[in-house]
Every structure is written in structure tokens, then in C-alpha cells.
């Protein structure tokens, strides 16, 4: 017979549910502890205004992605926000069919791609991005793509923004 049937045990009562751990929310670092808690918060402000941007170093001219507050090449801290050219070219792509991250599982299978914008690597960037409403079979290397703004809905009611690629 189980011990708890033999005698009354002291209970430690826990909540019915434990909320989704923030480590599984892939967009949590936008505001680690509130707006402006990250030095690159303008990246997210610009997304909310419809612009995908990054930083270019005014000292040495290096175009970087992701944006940073100090240039890793010349240590300068005078950075300029620049718009990433809207149209780029598919460099490689796949479609995630198994093992999608838990928070976007409902969207699987979805296409994950790398696209090049501008004149990479001299004066352009190579970005990863998700693609929706398109299948692996419909794409080929070299296809023209555009970035667009993605609205992240939930968890909670805070509005957050990201970017994705769509075929031109």
C-alpha cells in the first residue's frame, strides 16, 4: 500500500501549469529586460517601422550583420544604421520537415534559406530567413527574393516584429 494511503503526508503544492520557458521563445532577446536594454534596439524599432536595417562602421566602412555597437574590425563606435537592399538572391535553401523548434512547430514544414543582399561579401550581407507559402520544389538557387516584415503574435500581447523572405 502506498505510503500516502497509510498516513497523511505533508503536501508541497505547486502551480497547475508552468509557463513556457523564455529560453524557447526565439524572439525574447529583443527586450531582455525592457526597451533599450540592448544596444541594438534600433534594429527592432526599425523593423516596427517597416525597415530591415543593420549597422555600417563610419570609421572603416565595414557593413556588418547582425548590427553591433562597436566595430569588431577597427574598434570604432560610430555606427550608422543603413537599410538592407530590399531585393536579394537565393544562395541556398531547404525545407525543415522534422525537428522544427518547438515555438514554430505549427508552421513546419517551412523553407529556411540563405539569401545575399547587395554585393556580398565586399559590400553586402548574407542573411538567413524563413519563407512561407512556398515549397522546396518551387525554388532554385539564384531566384530573386525580397525581405518583408513579419509580425510576431504572442505569447502575451506585446507587438514584436521580425523579417522573412518572399519569392519575387
Amino acid at each position: 500500500m502506498a505510503l500516502r494511503e497509510l498516513r497523511k503526508l505533508r503536501k508541497l503544492e505547486l502551480p497547475d501549469t508552468v509557463p513556457l520557458s523564455p529560453i524557447l521563445d526565439l524572439w525574447d532577446q529583443q527586450e531582455p529586460s525592457g526597451p533599450d536594454a540592448t544596444g541594438i534596439y534600433d534594429f527592432y524599432r526599425n523593423l516596427a517601422d517597416g525597415e530591415l536595417t543593420t549597422t555600417e562602421c563610419k570609421g572603416c566602412g565595414k557593413l556588418l550583420f547582425p548590427p553591433v555597437i562597436i566595430c569588431p574590425y577597427c574598434n570604432g563606435n560610430d555606427m550608422e544604421w543603413v537599410r538592407i537592399p530590399e531585393e536579394g538572391e537565393l544562395y541556398a535553401f531547404t525545407e525543415l520537415k522534422l525537428g522544427a523548434p518547438i515555438i514554430v512547430e505549427n508552421y513546419a514544414p517551412f523553407v529556411i534559406a540563405i539569401a545575399r543582399f547587395g554585393n556580398y561579401p565586399e559590400n553586402g550581407v548574407q542573411l538567413s530567413g524563413m519563407m512561407f507559402d512556398v515549397r522546396y520544389e518551387d525554388l532554385k538557387i539564384g531566384d530573386k527574393v525580397k525581405w518583408d516584415i513579419l509580425e510576431i503574435v504572442g505569447p502575451g500581447d506585446k507587438a514584436r516584429y521580425w523579417y522573412y523572405f518572399k519569392k519575387v
Binding site: Q30, E105, G129
Partner: peptide
């Protein structure tokens, strides 16, 4: 699913991670 999702933070979690970049898609590319 937590185990698999944890592989995402091996890459730059804030950027490539947010695009679903775990190991299989990267090596597929």
C-alpha cells in the same frame, strides 16, 4: 522537443536561431 530546440542556441540565437536554424537545415544548405 526542448532537447531539439536547444540546438538552436549553438548558432547566433537572436538572429539565425530566430529563423529556425538548427543543425539539420544548416548542413542541408
Amino acid at each position: 522537443n526542448v532537447s531539439q530546440s536547444s540546438m538552436i542556441n549553438v548558432g547566433n540565437r537572436e538572429f539565425d536561431g530566430a529563423n529556425g536554424f538548427t543543425a539539420p537545415p544548416f548542413f542541408a544548405l
